[in-house]
Simulated assay, not measured.
Amino acid sequence: MKLSVLDQSPIRKGSTAREALQETVALAKWTEELGYTRFWVAEHHNVTSLAGTTPEILIAHLAGQTQSIRVGSGGVMLPHYSALKVAENFRMLETLFPGRIDLGMGRAPGGDRVTASLLNPTNTFNEQDLVQQLFDLQNYLNDRYAPGSVQAKVRAMPIPPSVPEQWLLSSSGHSGVLAAHFGMGFSFAHFINPHGGPEAVANYRARFQPSENLEQPQANVAFFVFCSNDPETVHRQQAMIDYRFLQYETRGRVDPFDYDDIKTVDYSPAEEARIQHNRQRMVMGNAEEVKQQLEKYADRYEVDEVMLVNVASELDERLESYRLLAEAFELKSVVV
């Protein structure tokens, strides 16, 4: 099974955005060395605990700091941008790093709706607008437009030697239908929604229509994952991610914190119920436990690639988590 990474560039308590991005670079280099398949970075806006706002810029830096691992967006939030500009950004990346760029796309705001309205004042999150954007984007990436159309007068530049892989990201089944229609890869965000994923992936496969960029359906699934062979470390990270989720759900944001800040927090019965629900979005434990759970999920989803989202509070613990899983899955590095 292939393992890949989705990194959100979390900002630790007492740290800075610059340090968080430096940690993302360190993780990309480390996971490449360990044999991970791809390294995606997220897009979030007006979120003080996450440093990743512009994946296309961070991708360029990461690809320049690595040699072979695929680097991409997890994902670009299409409603904020024009299809032409997204095509230009990723054609530039593909020109600089041919054969290594993934264009992962989503429709979520990546933050709150007020911020989304400022990023694109004309954005209505209309379903048909998204369909049109995907149609336009594929035309720009593949240089195909009907003669006489307005778009036919414009080419997305530069023209790269290859086309970046295109993935549609979603926590529901509907985007899987769109990914199938446009012949794109499909990534299901189990770390956002733990229900309906296997059915969404199966429906994507059943409806898949080959495109010039992808002949066969290609799917993966993403989980929050933390691995340590020290039970106390697992307990501490579990407590912190439980608290993180509740803060997002009740306050709409998470301010940086550490374990000492939350270790004595008492939760209400309703909060305890949310904690138990949210634990379905994650896989945590020692190396063997995590390996077994991920293999079970991979069987349920019928995928051969799992993406790991790790927001552990300490960089060394994230590095060790990725190392333990690379060892457990016997990943092979291709770095010379």
Score class of each variant (00 low, 15 high):
Met1Lys: 12
Met1Ala: 15
Ser4Glu: 02
Ser4Pro: 08
Ser4Cys: 08
Ser4Leu: 01
Ser9Ile: 08
Ser9Pro: 04
Pro10Met: 06
Ile11His: 05
Thr16Val: 06
Arg18Asp: 13
Ala20Cys: 05
Ala20Asn: 02
Leu21Phe: 02
Leu27Val: 06
Ala28Trp: 03
Lys29Asn: 07
Lys29Cys: 08
Tyr36Asp: 02
Thr37Ala: 12
Phe39Trp: 05
Trp40Glu: 04
Trp40Thr: 05
Ala42Lys: 01
His45Pro: 06
His45Arg: 09
Val47Ser: 11
Leu50Ala: 06
Thr53Tyr: 02
Thr54Phe: 13
Glu56Thr: 05
His61Asp: 02
Leu62Arg: 03
Ala63Asp: 01
Gln65Lys: 14
Thr66Cys: 03
Gln67Thr: 14
Gly72Asn: 03
Gly75Leu: 02
Gly75Pro: 04
Tyr81Ile: 08
Ala83Phe: 04
Leu84Ser: 04
Leu93Ser: 01
Glu94Gln: 10
Thr95Gln: 05
Thr95His: 09
Gly104Cys: 07
Met105Phe: 06
Gly106Trp: 03
Arg107Lys: 14
Arg107Pro: 05
Gly110Met: 00
Ala116Met: 08
Leu119Ser: 09
Leu119Tyr: 08
Asn120Pro: 06
Asn120Asp: 01
Pro121Tyr: 07
Thr124Cys: 01
Gln128Thr: 13
Gln128Val: 10
Asp129Lys: 10
Leu130Ser: 14
Gln132Phe: 00
Tyr145Cys: 11
Tyr145Val: 13
Gly148Asp: 10
Ala152Lys: 12
Met157Asn: 14
Pro164Met: 07
Ser171Gly: 12
Leu178Pro: 01
His181Ser: 06
His181Met: 07
Met184Pro: 03
Gly185Thr: 07
Phe188Pro: 04
Asn193Cys: 12
Pro198Val: 09
Pro198Gly: 05
Ala200Phe: 07
Ala200Ser: 15
Asn203Glu: 15
Asn203Leu: 14
Arg207Cys: 05
Gln209Ala: 14
Leu214Met: 14
Glu215Thr: 15
Gln216Trp: 10
Pro217Glu: 03
Ala219Phe: 02
Asn220Pro: 08
Val221Leu: 07
Ala222Phe: 06
Phe223Leu: 08
Phe226Tyr: 14
Thr233Glu: 15
His235Lys: 11
His235Ile: 00
His235Gln: 13
Ala239Trp: 10
Ile241Tyr: 08
Phe245Ala: 02
Thr250His: 09
Arg253Lys: 15
Pro256Ser: 07
Lys263Arg: 13
Thr264Glu: 09
Pro269His: 00
Glu272Lys: 15
Ala273Ser: 11
Gln276Ile: 00
His277Ala: 00
Gln280Cys: 07
Arg281Asn: 10
Met284Tyr: 08
Glu288Thr: 15
Leu294Cys: 06
Lys296Ile: 00
Lys296Ala: 10
Tyr297Thr: 02
Ala298Phe: 04
Tyr301Asn: 05
Glu305Gln: 12
Val306Phe: 01
Val306Gly: 02
Met307Thr: 09
Val311Ile: 11
Ala312Tyr: 04
Glu317Arg: 12
Arg318Trp: 01
Ser321Thr: 00
Glu327Gln: 15
Leu331Thr: 11
Leu331Pro: 08
Ser333Ala: 05
Ser333Met: 01
